[in-house]
Structure formats: structure tokens, C-alpha cells
Amino acid sequence: MKTKRLSSPSPVTLLGGGDLGEGDLALALGLAPLCIAADGGAEPALEAGIDLAAVIGDMDSVRPEALARVPPDRIHRIAEQDSTDFDKALRSVAAPLVIAAGFTGLRMDHQLSVLNTMVRRADRACLLLGALEIAFVCPPALDLPTRVGDVVSLFPLQPVTGRSAGLEWPIEGLDFAPGYRVGTSNRALGPVRIEMDGPGMICLLPRDLIAPVARSLLELPAHARWPAREEPRRGPPRS
């Protein structure tokens, strides 16, 4: 389905209706002041007095009285039920970086769906904020501002190979795949460089690295990012 694209030259905070920890909003907005909500994410934003640039989704998770507080021209209703509100929002926003908050905690199926969408939309730079970690799809190559002893977890959502420098357990020569080999709890020996042969690898790092990792993702030129994938055939409807 063709969706109206919302463009921003600067990073965007995308809010969901999941768990928002103390300080999550301030941390995300400090890095990406323009705020967009995915459906039910409008409610915590409005409660915090945030001026929403847009609300995107099928609008089945936000109360009508809350939605009435958003100017009509900022409401982007996408009625189809073949994708989640996170997917609807991520595919509708063109920005150099999206900081996604409020998409972890609560329902596990929603968290898995968010990670799946991040890989599916690997051409969109998206940094997922969790309670203890941040997560993002590894681009073709990225230098990470890690410190000695930092946990670096690599979790594949499709078969993928790559190389690393600065990890205690290098990944070169390893075949990663869901249900086979994963890279949980590797450790940094200092700054780390990761190179991937294709999209599909989720990298998880300590939460306090969000600002320097965001800068590293923003500095990637267009040719150093994954290209957009051809839209796959829709699966069964999701609630």
C-alpha cells in the first residue's frame, strides 16, 4: 500500500504505546526533538505536553478524546491490518535517523514484531531504546564507540555473515542464522568495527551508548546504508 511520506531533515523520535521508562522521553527527544507517535504512542506524548508532528496508524489503540487533541492534518490514518503500527510509521517517515521509544516491555509478540520490521526496513536507520539496551540493524559497516568490557550482542533475524575487529570473539567465518548460531554476550576490547555482508543482524549495546551510536549512524553516507527491499507479499492480518 502506498503511504504518504513524512520527511524531516533531522532525527525523529517515534513513540509507541509500550513501556516507557523513566527518562526515556527526555533521552529520545534530546537526540531527536521532532516527535511522531505510532497510534497509542500519542497518549503518553500528549500527557507529557509534547507537540506531536504526526500520529500514524490505524487509530485502534488511541482514545478518541486523546486523538481530538491532535490537529486533524497531523493524523495519518492507515486502515489496512496487514502490518503493525510501528511498520506503518517507520515506512511513512523519511528521516536520517529514527529513535524509537515505547516499543519494548509489555507484550513480547510486539517486541519481536518491532525487531522484524527493523530488519525488513533496514534501509531506515532506526535506533530502538530499551530499559537496559539499545538495538539497531547493523549497516554494511559501522565503527562502534564501545569501551573495554561492554557487552555487544549480535542476533540474526535471517542468515548473515560478517567480520569484526575489537570483539573478544571475532565473527569472521561464522554463519549466523535464526535457530542456529547467534552472538549473545560478546564483549568489546575497546572500540569495535562490524562489517556485514547483508542486512539481518540486530546489534544490542548498553543503553548509555545511545548518543555516540546515534552520531555514528547519522554520519553514514547514503551509499553506506542498505538499499530498500522490494515489498514482500503481505502475510495474514495482525491485530
Rank of each mutant, 00 (worst) to 15 (best):
1 M>C: 14
5 R>S: 14
5 R>Y: 13
5 R>Q: 15
6 L>R: 02
9 P>E: 13
10 S>C: 15
11 P>Q: 05
12 V>G: 04
13 T>M: 09
15 L>G: 03
15 L>A: 09
18 G>T: 07
19 D>A: 15
21 G>S: 11
21 G>F: 06
22 E>H: 15
24 D>F: 05
28 A>K: 04
28 A>S: 11
34 L>P: 09
34 L>Y: 13
40 G>I: 04
41 G>P: 03
42 A>S: 08
42 A>K: 01
42 A>I: 07
44 P>G: 13
45 A>D: 02
45 A>Y: 02
46 L>H: 09
46 L>A: 12
46 L>I: 13
47 E>N: 15
47 E>K: 15
49 G>L: 08
53 A>D: 12
53 A>T: 13
53 A>E: 12
54 A>L: 10
55 V>P: 00
56 I>S: 00
59 M>Q: 08
59 M>H: 06
62 V>R: 07
63 R>A: 15
68 A>E: 14
69 R>V: 14
70 V>K: 08
71 P>Q: 13
71 P>L: 13
72 P>M: 10
73 D>E: 14
76 H>N: 12
77 R>T: 11
79 A>L: 10
82 D>N: 09
83 S>F: 03
86 F>W: 02
88 K>Y: 02
89 A>L: 04
90 L>V: 10
90 L>F: 10
91 R>G: 08
91 R>I: 11
93 V>C: 06
93 V>M: 06
95 A>Y: 04
95 A>T: 07
95 A>L: 07
96 P>H: 06
98 V>K: 00
101 A>W: 10
103 F>V: 05
104 T>K: 10
106 L>R: 15
107 R>T: 05
107 R>S: 07
111 Q>S: 09
111 Q>L: 06
115 L>V: 05
116 N>P: 09
117 T>R: 04
120 R>M: 12
121 R>K: 10
121 R>W: 05
123 D>T: 07
124 R>C: 07
127 L>S: 00
128 L>C: 00
131 A>F: 02
132 L>T: 04
132 L>A: 08
133 E>G: 06
134 I>Y: 01
136 F>H: 05
136 F>I: 05
138 C>V: 10
141 A>Y: 08
142 L>F: 09
146 T>S: 08
146 T>H: 04
148 V>S: 15
149 G>F: 09
150 D>K: 00
150 D>E: 05
151 V>S: 09
152 V>W: 03
153 S>F: 00
153 S>H: 01
154 L>T: 01
155 F>N: 04
156 P>V: 01
158 Q>L: 04
166 G>F: 01
168 E>L: 08
176 F>H: 05
176 F>D: 02
178 P>D: 05
179 G>M: 10
180 Y>Q: 14
181 R>Y: 12
181 R>H: 12
181 R>P: 09
182 V>E: 12
182 V>F: 13
187 R>I: 07
190 G>S: 06
192 V>G: 03
193 R>V: 10
199 P>E: 06
199 P>A: 12
201 M>H: 02
202 I>T: 03
202 I>H: 03
203 C>S: 07
203 C>I: 06
208 D>Y: 11
209 L>D: 00
210 I>R: 00
211 A>M: 06
212 P>K: 02
213 V>Y: 00
214 A>K: 00
214 A>E: 00
217 L>A: 01
217 L>V: 01
218 L>C: 00
222 A>K: 12
223 H>I: 15
223 H>N: 15
224 A>L: 12
229 R>M: 14
229 R>E: 14
231 E>L: 09
233 R>I: 15
238 R>G: 12
238 R>I: 15
239 S>F: 14
